[in-house]
Nucleic acid binder design. Sequence first.
DNA 1: CGAGCTTGTGCAAATGTTTGCACATCTTAA
DNA 2: TTAAGATGTGCAAACATTTGCACAAGCTCG
Lengths: 352, 352
Amino acid sequence: MPTRHGPGRPTIETISEAAGVSVSTVSRALKGNRRISERTRTAVVEIARQLGYLPNAHARSLVTRRSGLIGFVMGDVYNPFYPEMLDSLVQRATARGLRLMVLHVGRKPLAMSTIESLLQYQMDGCIITSAELTSKAAEVCRTHRLPMVAMNRVPRLNNCAVSCDNAAGGRALGELLVAAGHRKIAIVAGAPNTSTSGDREAGIVAALSRSKVKPLVRLEGGSTYEGGLAAGHALVQGSKRPDAVFAINDIMALGVVDALREHGLRIPEDISVVGFDDIHAASWSNYDLTTVAQPIDAMVERALDLLDARMKEPDAPAENAFIVGALRIRTSARLPVDLPTTIESLRERGLI
Amino acid sequence: MPTRHGPGRPTIETISEAAGVSVSTVSRALKGNRRISERTRTAVVEIARQLGYLPNAHARSLVTRRSGLIGFVMGDVYNPFYPEMLDSLVQRATARGLRLMVLHVGRKPLAMSTIESLLQYQMDGCIITSAELTSKAAEVCRTHRLPMVAMNRVPRLNNCAVSCDNAAGGRALGELLVAAGHRKIAIVAGAPNTSTSGDREAGIVAALSRSKVKPLVRLEGGSTYEGGLAAGHALVQGSKRPDAVFAINDIMALGVVDALREHGLRIPEDISVVGFDDIHAASWSNYDLTTVAQPIDAMVERALDLLDARMKEPDAPAENAFIVGALRIRTSARLPVDLPTTIESLRERGLI
DNA sequence: CGAGCTTGTGCAAATGTTTGCACATCTTAA
DNA sequence: TTAAGATGTGCAAACATTTGCACAAGCTCG
């Protein structure tokens, strides 16, 4: 029963000999082809089971041109959002019978060889969350008609993209701050030129201008904890002291909180802080961050659907999906006097 | 120049026609076989370049029985240690021309189909960090002579394992606490039956008993932030109030710190807290955790070396590697009056 | 009773590589 | 001059599948 590796490992031919039928019959029987009689089918399946037969994925991929592999280009692991996304992705890909190859992680630009491996392994598709050189990857994918979907990235060229509705989330947080009476609001933006940061920022700016408020100051935090920390220090030391900070992602928000506290400021009594993403640490009691939760599972599911559709129909037109996030009200920000009304209003307009 | 996917994509045969030589010559030329004349070789390589030829990994794997793939079974993403390890692993595997397939993530037991995919894709090896059902996976790997190395796990059966020298690290932290004058020391252990937790605990217990101190109390925190938080609360509310807490990993230590602070305790003035791992968040200003850094890069490098050796010689005997970690002194724990001497002593005995 | 359909099976080609072996040509040494 | 070696190349098998096509039987219907 225990099969061996390499030579001696049972193949479809081993089974065909044992069952006294041809290899093609075995192949068909194993995948439940209806042309095969019930009797033959069960016999073959039973023998395969006894031998511990496992189909060779490479041989199969070679002829079918489908590998069951999808490539993943992952963002910075030091932003917990990406690991959390990886988690969801592995689970859901597995459930669909797909395996995930992690081709790249971090902020460094994609090596050409990384992109090429998509082709060498004949991957069925790829999901990209990393920022740099995504356009090059997109071009390769398009040329080779390899399904690709960007997550949390602006749709480049004409490839698919799915993200949280960042603008809506930004608006929701902005309106929440304004309703709570904040007028001196600082924005800590992320890595420049990322749609995620841009859209969230545009969202809050829109929300503020609705009440004729302008952001007090704008800093960049590079989407890292350290960047948030530096921004927090700068805000306290600067001439314009805000009464609320909107960090465009949670990891920076945590840095902001720590910096503000180092200066003896209490949160939210002295200053409110909100983030975006709802990473796990946002709910830690020390931070208890008001934020917008990215609907990771829904986003991943959607991304896989898009990939799936394009595996079947490579020329399907590109689609963009924006899924609204969920507002998480915690204690890092002052609350509006009439919270229920504020929330109701946001909900009615589909912002959360 | 832009190659297409599927039919029409240049193969070794396309090149052979263009170059007027046989496919075997092309194959040899491309991999720099010395039997091929310089003239032929450069001609072939040039044509391949022009056509944008990329070898088909599946075809190659089919015949060579080497796939260039290694499987990774990853622990809980909510413990940042594992994502940080993934980062290192992807970088270093890529540098060796290997690709990483993430087969599983999280604490749930390994599905049989997950283990089987190791065989279907003819992976060259696998690295396992997850706890549950590792023994089943180890058995499969052994049966099929598939190189496997466990990371941060006890060596089961006779497979390879590499970990931080957890016992040494535990000792170092224990001695540090004792030298700082602590006598009422609480231990927050991790998931039961994990060697990581057990070894670290054994280490600190040994260190304490060296000074005739016994742990004041022992709790379990399940290796999660929430578990650490609960343990922290329990410590304050319990009858025996410690003056120092040793959490066997950082993620729990963060929870402990947050819980203690909720009760108004100052760290380290009222109570010292140390962890283990040196995850990124351990250095956040809010925590600034004294801890032992796992030498992730060295561990990963070692694991890949072990894998490599067993790809070449599948019957090589199992090896276990323990790499000493580095003590990171920060501000979450009181310091010994004579810190340099303490450190020197630890270093002399190879504990850090 | 035979034409045509259904049902079950097998043959063989195709997928894109690698590699053992054979072979042809050229050099070198006796 | 010839045997032996070196050098460069090609043939064909092997890797483990899938799948179009053909074919044989058994059935139904006119």
